[in-house]
Design a protein around this nucleic acid. Structure first.
Lengths: 135, 135
DNA sequence: TTTTCACTTTAGAATTATTATAAACTAGAA
DNA sequence: TTCTAGTTTATAATAATTCTAAAGTGAAAA
């Protein structure tokens, strides 16, 4: 993804392309594979990659802006930290609690045959499958 | 569940039946339906029910002991707080983000037809399905 | 029954993740 | 170039949880 595309991506979602947002967006979206991270891990990786350091609050702000804009999804994982995923399509996850690692599973790789009705006046928003791993 | 059974339950899992543990166990396990709670909600409910108040650390200690003994399971839910469930059998959940409410789904009510293989040297520990609800 | 001690409880401090605040900064329109 | 709303930043505040160390207590042994 070129710099111009990053700018477009930000602008089209109402986010002013600031230096920080562009750097973080480049880091997150210029990759082949999907990327899973926490704010802490992202902060460490960014500090290592670029010489300048951003305020932690900026990482939080940016990640939340990206999520609100639909460029990141949040993954619920047992534990204290919040995980984010650059894969925003409907999909599922393996979770390896030994390494705290998430691995994407394509939506088409899980087929559910039987599913219960939503209770009372509710509707089903989406279905998330977690496959927990062991050694 | 009678007091004698609570004592058995605690003893058989290596937990000394202290006043606090017995009270909390009675509150959690003397019910028909499964019960979902956070440490905060449990603390509030306990304070209301019994006139004496336990230290918050005791609630944490006890809940974690019960979990380690297999009497409670932990449910991953998007958000900051940790949810526990008195249903320790293999099952799934509806999650209503509007009310932060969890509802059990019996394992037999969800049938998965196709599932991917575990990566590299890993094995599947268990599969958890979350059905997120909307209005 | 009394003694003893490892296990528990407790209050409060410490830690960790996250959000709020308010001042300084900046992208980009005018 | 100026102006301003939106952004970044350092720091404080909050919230959930864990740690600590002293006081308390089941229950085994004497």
């Amino acid at each position: 993804m070129k710099k111009i595309d990053i700018y477009k991506k930000l602008r089209s979602s109402g986010l002013r392309p600031t230096k920080q947002r562009v750097e973080i967006a480049k880091f997150l979206f210029e990759r082949e594979k999907t990327f899973h991270f926490t704010v802490e891990s992202l902060n460490k990786l960014l500090t290592k990659k670029i010489n300048s350091k951003f305020a932690l609050a900026t990482i939080y702000n940016t990640v939340h802006s990206f999520k609100a804009a639909g460029h990141l999804s949040e993954v619920e994982v047992r534990g204290n930290k919040t995980y984010f995923d650059t894969n925003v399509s409907n999909h599922h996850h393996f979770y390896d609690s030994e390494t705290s690692e998430l691995i994407d599973i394509d939506a088409s790789d899980i087929v559910i045959q039987k599913i219960p009705k939503a209770p009372n006046g509710k509707k089903i928003k989406n279905v998330e499958v977690f496959i927990n791993l062991k050694n």
